[in-house]
């Protein structure tokens, strides 16, 4: 019980920290929308003159983009660089002394940030949906349940990938290049910029076995009702397996990193 409270404290602190600088908090979130606006108009132009592409019509695509934006915004820049920054500055030394598990503590802080930012992102997302006249959310409570579950899976998967790439900073020192690589891989293979159903066969086969699709494609296709209900359970099982695998992979990398760690003025 005491352990749980320890991590709950991390979550609460992260919420306070995120909302402390109000201007930055707001700008962080608005900035997430900017590149989506460009993509949105690109798709709108694509859909004038084509009613169905890759098995999706314009309304599906709008829903897909909304969820893509929402899930991408849940873990933002501040979480992205937390690990690499503390390695770079040497603050990791302080964190190593603390009587908490680094991986779990990091997850808790990311959850806190995610809650603080997610609320506002969802609010703006709903506003945006009303603005563009999109109004076909999932019909049944069961579909909503599946969607929320998929968002949870999405969050955990993305956290683990971000965290693992952050740990690589132990070897590279700088975190920027790694973060770009991660973003490129995630955005492409999760279906964030183009739905996986548009991919040619071989690329789709690759995307289907990788963990990235859980981040955007799964929640978004559930939301617009394009993931057949019969496949949902199997998809979740694969995602859960990936989460377990990534969790232990992160532990393994951490184990090797601890042999490597050097700290300024050590």
């Amino acid at each position: 019980m005491l352990t749980f409270q320890k991590y709950l404290r991390h979550v609460l602190c992260a919420i306070q920290e995120t909302t402390a600088y109000r201007a930055s908090y707001f700008i962080n979130i608005v900035s997430q929308f900017v590149s989506y606006i460009a993509i949105f108009f690109l798709w709108r132009a694509v859909y004038t003159g084509n009613s169905v592409i890759g098995g999706m019509d314009w309304n599906d695509m709008q829903g897909y983009l909304l969820i893509s934006l929402f899930t991408s915004a849940l873990i933002s820049g501040s979480s992205e660089f937390r690990v690499s920054r503390s390695i770079w500055t040497g603050n990791i030394a302080v964190e190593l002394v603390r009587p908490v598990d680094y991986q779990k503590a990091n997850f808790s802080i990311t959850v806190g940030n995610g809650i603080a930012e997610g609320v506002l992102v969802a609010a703006i997302g709903i506003l945006f949906a009303l603005l563009i006249g999109f109004a076909v959310p999932p019909a049944s409570p069961a579909a909503w349940l599946c969607f929320l579950l998929a968002v949870a899976f999405s969050f955990i998967t993305k956290f683990l990938i971000v965290y693992i790439f952050g740990l690589f900073t132990f070897w590279t020192t700088g975190g920027m290049g790694l973060s770009w690589l991660r973003r490129g891989l995630t955005d492409f293979f999760s279906g964030a910029i183009i739905p996986l159903s548009f991919f040619p066969g071989w690329l789709k086969a690759a995307a289907d076995v990788l963990p990235f699709r859980g981040i955007v494609s799964v929640p978004a296709t559930i939301f617009i009702g394009r993931l057949p209900p019969s496949q949902i359970l199997a998809t979740f099982a694969v995602e859960a397996a990936w989460i377990a695998a990534l969790w232990w992979l992160a532990r393994l990398i951490w184990h090797f990193a601890m042999r490597k760690v050097t700290i300024h003025g050590g």
Binding site: Y21, S24, S31, S35, A38, S76, G77, S78
Partner: peptide
Amino acid sequence: LTSFYNAFPLMVHQMADFAKY
């Protein structure tokens, strides 16, 4: 904006996405 993490410049930078199409 004196916060350590300031996303405003990045947002402005990202607006160059509009120039790509």
